[in-house]
Simulated assay, not measured.
Amino acid sequence: MLTADRLFYNEGIHAVGIQRIVAESRVTRVTLYRHFASKDDLISAYLDRRAAYDHRQVDGIIDAHPDEPRQALEELATALTRDDFAAVRRGCPFINASAEFTASHPVRVHALEIRRWVTERLEGLLQRLEHSDPRSTAEQLMMVRTGAVVSGALDANEHLNDDFLACWSKLIDDGLPRGAQARARSRGK
């Protein structure tokens, strides 16, 4: 699975054939097909593995801050800059996979599911902060995250982390009740 993950992410799903995966993973074709009945099953396992990482990361951060939704949101953003931007130099694996398949293909459905799940988790945190527009802001936070991942993959933005964190915080702060905005600003100084 690690070989398929590396090759699918680095080179693209369509560009990598089963024979290449067999050769580089040093397993027989029979062994591979014993675990994955088809290439589509292997692709699904690849995306499941990537989604499971996201689930663990997001839930772990939220669970670490059960009474501090703002802190959880900040830590989620920080985790992206600390972990994900460096790990996804070729962009988001779900977006990359989606680009290779039609809208009705299970790969696209899988990508949509993980993005919706993350967005729902962000929305829940924003609701707990009594944000004025948690649904729209959660969507915007996902857009900013996606844009930052693409920027990290394509641009030579030396300020990507700082720019991303500032935008993330502003989106959150702009919808908070006035007293919460003042507290957020004082924490940032």
Rank of each mutant, 00 (worst) to 15 (best):
Y33F: 15
Y33V: 04
R34C: 07
F36D: 01
A37Q: 10
A37W: 07
A37N: 12
S38K: 00
K39Y: 11
D40Y: 03
D40H: 09
D40K: 03
D40F: 02
D41F: 01
D41K: 03
D41I: 01
L42C: 01
I43D: 09
S44D: 14
A45H: 10
Y46Q: 01
Y46F: 14
Y46D: 05
L47G: 03
L47K: 02
D48S: 05
D48I: 01
R50V: 12
A51L: 00
A51P: 02
A52D: 15
A52V: 08
A52G: 12
H55K: 12
H55A: 08
R56K: 14
Q57V: 06
V58A: 06
D59G: 05
G60Q: 09
I61M: 05
I62N: 03
D63I: 00
D63P: 06
D63M: 04
D63T: 08
H65V: 07
P66A: 01
D67G: 14
P69D: 14
R70K: 12
Q71P: 04
E74Y: 11
L76I: 14
L76P: 13
A77E: 02
A77K: 00
T78A: 14
T78L: 15
L80N: 13
T81K: 05
R82A: 11
R82H: 11
R82N: 09
D83I: 13
D84H: 00
A87Y: 03
A87C: 06
V88F: 13
R89S: 08
R89D: 11
R90I: 06
R90N: 10
R90M: 11
